[in-house]
């Protein structure tokens, strides 16, 4: 019932509903299907963005002992990092808003005890959030490309293993590409000339058998034979290795 896309979007609805059951995803899909006759991801994205307003509102109503406009930085912390249409960006924004709100609540509770922080806290956080939103400040991951490659290879390998085909692990292919071994030139042949000739002209074209016994019963076939000229053939085959 739950496809990966639906499972990703379920976080949006779960945050609204405060539900902990992942089967709600299927329920939402079913509900939309019953109402409109199709499952459209775009409406889920719209609902996800509306849920951000809901979170901001929740934070707004729970701001005790502080001016209400203090939740402006929380709203500004939302930033479309990977594009507006992907489910990843939805998840990213909802997590960032929630974490910022919780961090903000923590800082505010700390500011209750240290009142001299209180004066500089709001302008600092507000300036910081606006700077982040306008991309003057960027958080950098350590080795982001490496992490991305690692994650995507894990995902791709998972898909490949479950397809049921033989495959090279993507990590191996990626390693080959990075070390430019795809274009590796071989200066000298690895095997002898006889080895390569074998593919065009087999050293042993036929083997003679002397049949000692060959008969069939109702369900079995019995065969006994002796290979003639063994030593020549073995010598011919040995030449290619």
């Amino acid at each position: 019932m739950t496809s990966p896309i639906l499972a990703t979007n379920s976080t949006l609805f779960l945050s609204i509903q405060r539900a902990s059951n992942s089967h709600h995803t299927g329920l939402w899909a079913w509900l939309q299907f019953q109402i409109t006759g199709q499952i459209d991801l775009r409406w889920w994205l719209v609902a996800g963005n509306l849920s951000l307003l809901g979170i901001t509102y929740l934070f707004y109503t729970n701001l005790a002992n502080f001016p209400r406009w203090w939740n402006l930085p929380v709203a500004f912390f939302k930033r479309y990092e990977y594009g507006i249409t992907t489910t990843t960006s939805q998840r990213y924004s909802i997590y960032s808003v929630i974490s910022t709100a919780s961090l903000f609540v923590f800082i505010l509770s700390e500011a209750q005890t240290f009142s001299h922080i209180k004066r500089f806290l709001f302008p600092t956080i507000f300036a910081f959030s606006v700077a982040i939103h306008l991309k003057y400040v960027t958080f950098c991951l350590r080795n982001p490309e490496g992490r991305k490659a690692e994650l995507t290879t894990k995902m791709e390998n998972y898909q490949l293993t479950h397809l049921g085909y033989d495959y090279f692990e993507i990590a191996i292919l990626d390693k080959l590409r990075r070390n430019s071994n795809y274009n590796l030139s071989i200066s000298a042949p690895i095997h002898s000339k006889a080895f390569y000739d074998n593919f065009n002209q087999p050293p042993v074209k036929s083997i003679k058998l002397r049949v000692n016994q060959l008969y069939q019963t109702r369900d079995k076939l019995h065969f006994t034979g002796t290979i003639l000229g063994t030593t020549e053939h073995i010598a011919a085959i040995n030449r290619i290795f």
């Binding site: 079995k220 019995h222 006994t224 290979i227």
Partner: peptide
């Protein structure tokens, strides 16, 4: 039996 003699009894 052993090589160079080959014996097999298989299902038809």
């Amino acid at each position: 039996t052993s090589l160079p003699t080959v014996t097999f009894i298989i299902s038809k």
